[in-house]
Write a protein that binds this DNA or RNA. Sequence first.
DNA 1: CGGGTATTTGACGACTGTCAACGCCAGTGG
DNA 2: CCACTGGCGTTGACAGTCGTCAAATACCCG
Lengths: 248, 248
Amino acid sequence: MKKSFTVISNPTHCHKCPIKERSLYQAFSNDYIQDAEHKRTEQISIPARTSLYDEHELSDKAYTLFEGWLLLYRAHTDGGRQGLRIALSGDFVGYAPLLGSPRNHSALSLTPSILCGFQQEDLHSLMINHPALAMQVTQLQSRDMARCHTHILGIGRKTAEGRIVHLILELYDRLKNRGLVSSQTMTMPFPLTQEVISDMTGLSQVHVNRVMSKLKSDKLITCKYKQLTLLDWDQLTEIGEYFSPPLN
Amino acid sequence: MKKSFTVISNPTHCHKCPIKERSLYQAFSNDYIQDAEHKRTEQISIPARTSLYDEHELSDKAYTLFEGWLLLYRAHTDGGRQGLRIALSGDFVGYAPLLGSPRNHSALSLTPSILCGFQQEDLHSLMINHPALAMQVTQLQSRDMARCHTHILGIGRKTAEGRIVHLILELYDRLKNRGLVSSQTMTMPFPLTQEVISDMTGLSQVHVNRVMSKLKSDKLITCKYKQLTLLDWDQLTEIGEYFSPPLN
DNA sequence: CGGGTATTTGACGACTGTCAACGCCAGTGG
DNA sequence: CCACTGGCGTTGACAGTCGTCAAATACCCG
């Protein structure tokens, strides 16, 4: 988990982001692109299994994830991790409006990733000057909040099988909205190790394995070469008590 | 859980809120009080055990809690509840910036409560006109988010004892910041039933009872007549792995 | 091809849930 | 004043989900 970022380039325009239509970049389609141009910092690239930021640091930067998967988590005193959220391309992470406060979670790349960083204070002044951007951030936060609530419900009340299936289905939906799944076969990229799944669901890795094996032998999913295929959407949504949200 | 609100009055000024120095009202100390004056809706009063809003409704209003305790929760398909957050005086609840979207959680009064309502769209236009208010909302959301993360960590990784103790200590700190505890004896008002504790912690009511009994027999707390006293702060913080946040 | 990483499997036990019954207390109404 | 009722807390028995430990196997990347 070393920390070695590569500055790809001094990017010409941050709003060249391939996923402009979601996340923060959606807001940048307005007049304040001009301002934004001057605020962006460099674009960075990190390999898999690299710490992006730590919960004890001061939060100087926020990021937009262009490509890759991140695990946002909180460390437990016993050394374990509790996963909070998996960030996919287009997601906005690390924002902490309380100036000079430490982050309340850590972030780790699960795959090689490309991000675009913003100084928090620059974002702050952008938001003051462009209320529509502030509203946009507010809405992103609100959506994250809703997902947090769903997460709490899952960990607090669902069985191991339900939690895992829910996680898979949620990822499928989010990837689908990004055009990253094969809709025909319902196959998705799936770079999560069982340990990461256990982090996200509050289970042990061993138990995750048992449940995954059962899902496979029940012919609900197949999973090989970091690709996961859903074999029975209806039954899966029932097990995971999953309801597709309007947007992801 | 009937739903019968009482409109106390057409309040003269919403910013007469007794807890002006926290929550949204903090922001109202600026120039846009004038605007805000025209936006507030009525002040309402509800008895204990009354639903304030439901997760399936459209979210037309947001509220500032003036007095009382609320439980924000999400219903589980099996009929159970998963507690998300306990709101105390001064807290801002029910905000959902995605216009016309359903709420993602329900709210229930645990004690008789007094609230001040805002139309969501009015809040929205206030925020557009007064970016500092938008920033304020952003910061409130961010703080709630941090608490959500802590909650996820607790439910996902802590033992029953740890979760319950953490909940108690967090409430103590928040009440203390509101001047609602007897600091000498470390005694706080505690209107939570064991069922509500079980909702918040993801445990069963019976097991909550067992743990509470143990805490009492271990002389870590006493609890009677809806008053709870902390007897050993140091040991409690260790059991609950509790760290006082800078602000509440 | 080799070494580290990830997955798999089994045995065992603990934490926590479920069910059921009982007691306590406050508010209510006769 | 007292019986009644409903809500809440308490207790015991029992079961099951899930964690822990440990070891073997399969997999992947250099």
